[in-house]
């Protein structure tokens, strides 16, 4: 297996007024292609910042980040936008759908920035919504969908540009147990199809469904565990 993510000496320091706050203090991390990873940690541990750097939403203050063999440390903003668009899919805790657009339009959006023709956008977005089980809700706006359905629209949006990596930041944080399992089942399915999936969570039973659990504490990695033999859940 080749490395999907290779990080070395990642630091992140924010300046808050007069004080420098060090959030990440030297992270060395390698994640293999096709892996299924949970990043756990208390709030303020730096796990979300780590996720943002992995997702090219933020740049490290120091250190090297190589994604799929490409060194991103020196890449321009436009280059990072291209990587986010083509290689990465995001799933957020608060879904982050455009409230004035329909489910279909939301899923079409990444392809707008990829320069795909309108007809193809519609076809592929419809297929992605079918795949997450929302073929009959394409014309609904987010306000007309339940939380679980909204998160499934967000997952459809994340996978529609066929990314190599899906990053999910507390994907089940705003959902009840039953829909949490449904969403996890979808993410697991994506992983089964070869996509590298990384989930940030603080819920152990969610982390337990992944293959590898990484603990972050005070801006540093604090050990990790491998899950062999996945637990089976009712929704599976």
């Amino acid at each position: 297996m080749t490395a999907m993510i290779w990080m070395e000496g990642i630091h992140k320091t924010y300046r808050l007024g007069e004080v420098d706050v060090s959030v990440l203090k030297g992270i060395d991390l390698t994640i293999e292609e096709g892996d299924y990873v949970a990043i756990m940690g208390a709030s303020g541990s730096g796990k979300s910042t780590l996720m943002n750097i992995m997702g090219c939403l933020d740049r490290p203050s120091a250190g090297h980040y190589v994604l799929e063999g490409q060194n991103l440390t020196t890449l321009s903003n436009e280059g990072l936008a291209y990587v986010r668009n083509q290689r990465i899919g995001f799933v957020f805790q608060q879904f982050n759908l455009l409230s004035r657009s329909t489910a279909l339009e939301n899923v079409m959006l990444p392809m707008v920035y990829a320069g795909i023709s309108r007809r193809q956008r519609q076809q592929r977005a419809a297929a992605a919504l079918q795949r997450v089980g929302l073929g009959d809700r394409m014309g609904n706006r987010p306000s007309q969908l339940s939380g679980g359905q909204q998160q499934r629209v967000a997952i459809a949006r994340a996978l529609v540009n066929r990314p190599a990596l899906v990053l999910a930041d507390e994907p089940t944080g705003a959902l009840d147990t039953q829909t949490s399992y449904e969403v996890m089942a979808l993410l697991t399915e994506l992983n089964d199809q070869g996509i590298t999936v990384i989930i940030v969570t603080h819920e152990p039973d969610i982390a337990a469904q992944t293959h590898r659990i990484i603990h972050v504490q005070d801006g540093l990695l604090q050990g990790e565990a491998r899950n062999h033999g996945r637990t089976s859940y009712p929704a599976d």
């Binding site: 903003n77 436009e78 936008a81 668009n85 995001f90 982050n96 959006l109 920035y113």
Partner: peptide, 12 residues
Amino acid sequence: GIRKAIGATNQA
């Protein structure tokens, strides 16, 4: 923010 996260460039 959402548009940027899913790949919109500053130019877009």
